[in-house]
Design a binder for these strands. Structure first.
Length: 580
RNA sequence: CGGGGUGUGGCGCAGUCGGUAGCGCGCAUGGUUUGGGACCAUGAGGUCGGAGGUUCAAGUCCUCUCACCCCGACCA
């Protein structure tokens, strides 16, 4: 491609509404352009990069036993009613009415459709494992799109679904996909780590995310500094036994006692006022779970993790209760606790039952109680781990410490089990002729997000530094002073020769100054730059320089085409097969 | 949805006390330049997000509204 003909133009100014580096650079390089919030056009350069990523993903999916197909974007709403997932997806579902006023949804994912499809073709255990996948546009009406391509409402996603005859089969397929994902990231030059994750609206049991750790990520990852425990913060566990609480556990149970604590509403205020560590207090947090009032209690030094709470409660919608709602059940905001509260569902964090003599709210304005004890003074219908783990906490798996880092989620795999195949009756006959529900898994990679993550991870102050597998063009030829001597002719010849040997090459044939050309080359980020100028030609050479290296070297004009071709091939080959 | 912010040529911005819009980049033409975003000259391009109002007069003041960005609740 000739830069003079390329649709898209680089800009010097960074766009005012672009915050993240990937957003800024992709726009400045003329790769993407925003249409609406969370909706983007891919210009030719960006589209090429996107397709390269797709291709890598496709190859690894095929290698792992996947079969590519294509499902419709428009899905009947009935399918979502049947699965029940229109509730958990809720507002993020884009829905529309056709001319007959029939309700359709723009697919945010395709578990329903694929299960419905599988139902028709999957009949025997001999048909499994079955691993269909597609690379297709998804629509999700996100509450808040952000970060350019990092979080959008319309995006291409690779989504694979697996159908196995039993749990063991699913486990094996899941493992296979985890390795396939690792292979994808490795080929794309991204160091992604696999972490435990919550399955969210998708549903299912086990799930893992693949994270690229960068300070700009929107997720928080907790990982152990000594063992290999790693988890998304929304799912992470931690060892909550502290010296403090150990001592508390050993105490003798003392009688309940009411104390005046005027103006002490927060844990911090109460702890300070009564001169107790916050770990000897009981925190009460009021929620509305699926329209039902729920009181969550947790040791005062910990925070409730809403995601874990929602999971423990098995509810679809969870929000904090408003002050009026708290008062309605007879509790007093700031002085609340389960003590003396009737008819309210209580869920306790597992840090609570064995803790002795805590300070708790008295459900009376201006008063707390001392020596609140689980079992004697209050109980919970459910005890579960609902605490937010944080950096510095102790690892739940070993004696190490958890570290907190930000990450971009570039892949998510789920063990779904049979809840969808049950609901949509995707069953098969096992070897004993017994009808059973297929055991499902699903596996997603956001292609555009991956593109953004690659830029977030690979750039410098000049622009993008593409891994050669992803670069829209592998070689970028700059002709300086193309009107002088035979610069233009040499550049042109090199361009044609490289093209004919299947090297993707960009020729900057514009009559621009050297600075402009170099800066654009750096911005666009092709791995290898070739400079042809009167100066190099004077010594019968051209200059080559890798985008990620500082120094350039001169090579003879006559050897240039062959050498550059070989260098590109070598670089591509070294990344191409990483399976093991 | 809650909190914060921004809307003025393609992009980045200025616009005072209300007097009918300007700068830089980019673009076009001509010329001089050329190894890290050159220079001169000329030129094209704007219903100031939208609606309503106040006023002799509104980019500027008032009301409403829309869009976009950032922080929180969601996810590939």
């Amino acid at each position: 491609m000739r830069l003079s003909r390329l649709f898209g133009r680089t800009t010097r100014e960074t766009p005012a509404d672009a915050e993240s580096v990937s957003h800024q650079l992709l726009v400045r390089a003329g790769m993407i352009s925003q249409g609406a919030a969370g909706v983007y056009s891919y210009l030719p350069l960006g589209w090429r990069a996107l397709r390269r990523i797709e291709q890598v993903v496709r190859e690894e999916m095929d290698r792992a036993g996947g079969q590519e197909l294509l499902m419709p974007t428009l899905q009947p709403f009935e399918l979502w009613e049947a699965s029940g997932r229109y509730v958990s997806f809720g507002q993020s579902l884009f829905t529309l009415l056709d001319r007959k006023e029939h309700r359709l949804v723009l697919g945010p994912t395709h578990e329903e459709v694929i299960t419905d499809l599988a139902r028709r073709y999957l009949q025997s255990y001999r048909d499994m494992p079955l691993m269909p996948y597609q690379i297709q546009t998804k629509f999700r009406d996100e509450p808040r799109p952000r970060g350019g391509l990092l979080r959008v409402r319309e995006f291409t996603m690779k989504d694979m679904y697996s159908f196995d005859a039993d749990e063991a089969g699913l486990d094996a397929t899941y493992q296979k996909m985890a390795s396939a994902y690792a292979a994808v990231y490795s080929r794309l030059g991204l160091p992604a780590v696999m972490v435990e994750a919550d399955s969210g609206a998708i549903g299912g049991k086990a799930s893992h995310e693949f994270m690229v750790l960068t300070p700009t990520g929107e997720d928080i990852v907790l990982h152990c500094t000594t063992c290999d425990y790693a988890s998304n913060a929304e799912k992470a566990r931690s060892n909550k036994i502290t010296c403090d609480s150990d001592a508390v556990c050993a105490e003798e149970v003392r009688p309940l006692e009411e104390v005046a604590t005027p103006e002490s509403r927060t844990i911090e205020e109460v702890a300070t006022f009564l001169q107790r560590p916050s770990s000897q207090t009981l925190k009460a947090v009021f929620y509305i779970a699926d329209h039902e009032f729920v009181l969550a209690v947790i040791r005062g030094d910990l925070e409730v993790n809403d995601v874990k709470l929602q999971r423990a409660l098995k509810c679809d919608l969870l929000r904090l209760a408003e002050e009026g709602e708290i008062v309605d059940v007879g509790a007093v905001p700031g002085f609340g606790s389960p003590i003396g509260l009737d008819g309210v569902r209580v869920i306790a964090d597992d840090s609570v039952p064995h803790a002795r003599n805590l300070v708790a709210g008295a459900n009376r304005l201006g008063f707390h109680v001392l020596n609140a004890n689980y079992g004697r003074d209050y109980t919970a219908e459910l005890v579960a781990d609902i605490a937010q783990a944080r950096g510095g906490d102790r690892c739940p798996a070993c004696s190490g410490t958890l570290m907190e880092e930000r990450g971009i989620e570039v892949g998510h795999i789920f063990k779904l089990g049979t809840f969808l195949s049950d609901k949509l009756s995707a069953s098969f006959l096992d070897e004993n002729g017994v009808s059973r529900s297929a055991v499902m898994g699903c596996y997603g990679i956001g292609i555009g997000r991956l593109l953004a993550a690659i830029v977030e991870y690979g750039h410098d102050d000049k622009g993008i530094v593409w891994p050669i597998q992803v670069a829209p063009y592998q070689v970028h030829i700059c002709t300086l002073n193309p009107d002088k001597s035979n610069v233009e002719h040499t550049g042109e010849q090199l361009y044609q020769t490289l093209r004919s040997s299947d090297v993707d090459v960009l020729l900057d044939d514009r009559p621009a100054s050297p600075g402009v050309k170099f800066n654009d080359a750096d911005l666009i980020g092709a791995p290898l730059r070739v400079t042809v100028s009167p100066r190099t030609l004077a010594t019968g050479s051209v200059e080559i320089k890798w985008r990620n290296k500082k120094e350039a070297e001169l090579i003879a004009v006559g050897d240039a085409a062959d050498l550059v071709t070989a260098m590109v091939r070598d670089a591509l080959a070294s990344k191409r097969s990483t399976d093991g």
